[in-house]
Amino acid sequence: MVPIKATLFEDFIDGYFPLNVSLGHMLTRHGFSSAWILMRVAPMMEIPGLTAAEPVPLHLNPAHGGQVDWLAATIRISGQIASLSGLAKWHWNDPARANEKKFLTTLRLAEPAFLRGVGFMAGDVYSRSLGKVRRETNDPNILLLSTAQLAADPVSYKLKDKLDSALCWRTDFSQGLATLTPAALQPWACPYLELPDKKFEEGLLFRNTNNLPMSGIIADSLACL
């Protein structure tokens, strides 16, 4: 279990750019090398034939519109662009796309999206999901847990006794976005609920000492369950 430097944050990302481009802008703005984010209710669009650099059309053709109901993902910067891995629930207005399984992160948001998340800075600690992140020695409020540690269930409960309002978030990183279906969702575990019997690679454990109240991100995450 490694204490790492992390910042709880809220932000809006620009619409009209490909999602991964907007998220890349956001990471750069905050000085993060990676982040874990949660977005809810974000209108989106996919315009056939529109190249990444072209302006968006004036009018949204309803056949091209849809909505990200929620997205929970880790993001890492490579160059100027962010790459995403995580879970999402979405729907398109076009009924022909109802059973789509692939969620392309190069689609565009149809308006700026509000999101909450945790940001990480570049450092020496290797994390499979977050890239190399910075250790925190000064009163850490977040711990990075490896697979072995997650497997030892009593550890989480022991920590829960020690830390006030400890919340353990686990996301299934073993599957990329490409194979997701709405039916396969179990993104969260919270110490107040049953632990899922899924295999996780890494987890975050943190306590509520940050200036920014955690109630918002907790409410959002429970709404996704």
């Binding site: 809006f12 620009d14 308006e111």
Partner: peptide, 9 residues
Amino acid sequence: TREHLGRSD
């Protein structure tokens, strides 16, 4: 359907 909001919105 023709609206383009910015982050200032």
